[in-house]
Design a binder for these strands. Structure first.
Lengths: 204, 204
DNA sequence: CAACAGAATCAACACCATGTCGATTAGACT
DNA sequence: AGTCTAATCGACATGGTGTTGATTCTGTTG
């Protein structure tokens, strides 16, 4: 048993192949936009990255692993930006800021986010990543709702459950809008913000 | 060019193979619950239906076509029930009734509905079916909102756009809840109903 | 009832994408 | 120069899909 194909253990400081790895992910992202997940073949990715399939399997164990890594890369970026966002105390401002940031995220990474959502059922790894991301959003929305006077708690009409529903509303609405155009994304944002404000009791 | 394999032209009054066709769809539904779409192979379906793969391809042109037919069958059932529902003028009652019906639908057909949603991107046929279904819901929600005093129109804060967002909220929330349990479905329903009521201005 | 048509079924095949393996080259560090 | 490991390739095995031509079953009609 030669210690062959670790496929996940090449760890050092800026190896030559780290560039390749990034190239592969970039190619994958491009192809995803072009042909979609199903139509995209491992051969396509390899070819796009300028290597053979065999070489690609040195870096990633499977097609799913490639896409998972791509999602992970994007999602990590989300988290960073999420942490870096200034926190406001005034709920109205907090909501406006959150929606503005969400529009940006979907503008920049709509494709990968849609892919992540699509695959979150069939690929457990991606499901994990996305559900964690959703939790971040839900927690943030919950906090805003509570600060706006919505009763805390997990009951069906309390902050936590409402935040969850609002999160899914935003996810799905943006998901569809980002397939259309930037304009749709902007409109979707306005609508979601409006419903969020109403739900928080900040608008009659 | 022998006129072979029309695969969609066996039309007469209750042929022998119509039973087979139904058996195939039933098997497909069962397998879908058991192993999921990806893991489910055409061979599995055929075997479950008591025929060989070759025979199955006489009825359906592809795996996707089988699932599409299954979705179509379920969705048609939805439409029927949708038509048969009594229309109330009082918005509060209308909302309550709609949510009750939605819970029933997801209890009965949650699996196929989830599958439809998952495949609506990759299989255009299914996307068509589901988007039509969503339109029915959106139209209904819009009507209720307008009757409750929300301004009609397609602007971001007017009835139509709000109805769309609410529809996606319900879809996604039920989608997740129906993966868990009936109890979750009930809680989800309460939350969605609450937000819908608030958005309609029927609750402060 | 015989014979014919079309419905229904099958076994075998070709194709294609995936993932695996052993062998080979390229790079970096003594 | 030598050697160890990262990186790459080509060839193979596997498994699922969809196709085809032959074959059986079933009902209808002269």
């Amino acid at each position: 048993m030669p210690s062959h194909h670790p496929a996940r253990s090449r760890r050092a400081t800026e190896r030559k192949g780290d560039v390749r790895e990034r190239t592969i992910l970039d190619t994958c992202e491009a192809l995803l936009a072009q042909k979609g997940y199903d139509a995209m073949t491992v051969g396509d990715i390899a070819q796009g990255a300028g290597i053979t399939r065999g070489a690609l399997y040195f870096y990633f164990g499977s097609k799913q692993e490639v896409v998972t890594a791509l999602v992970a890369r994007t999602v990590e970026h989300l988290w960073e930006r999420s942490r870096a966002t200034a926190q406001t105390d005034e709920p109205r401002q907090a909501i406006a800021a959150a929606m503005r940031r969400t529009v940006e995220l979907w503008n920049e990474h709509g494709l990968v986010m849609r892919t992540a959502i699509d695959l979150s059922l069939t690929v457990p790894e991606i499901g994990e990543l996305w559900s964690h991301t959703a939790d971040l959003f839900i927690t943030a929305i919950t906090a805003v709702l509570e600060r706006a006077g919505i009763q805390a708690g997990t009951g069906p009409k309390q902050a936590s459950a409402m935040a969850r529903a609002l999160c899914w509303m935003i996810e799905r609405t943006f998901y569809h809008a980002s397939q259309e155009s930037r304009g749709e994304l902007q409109k979707a944002s306005s609508t979601c913000e409006h419903i969020w404000l109403i739900s928080a009791g900040l608008v009659t």
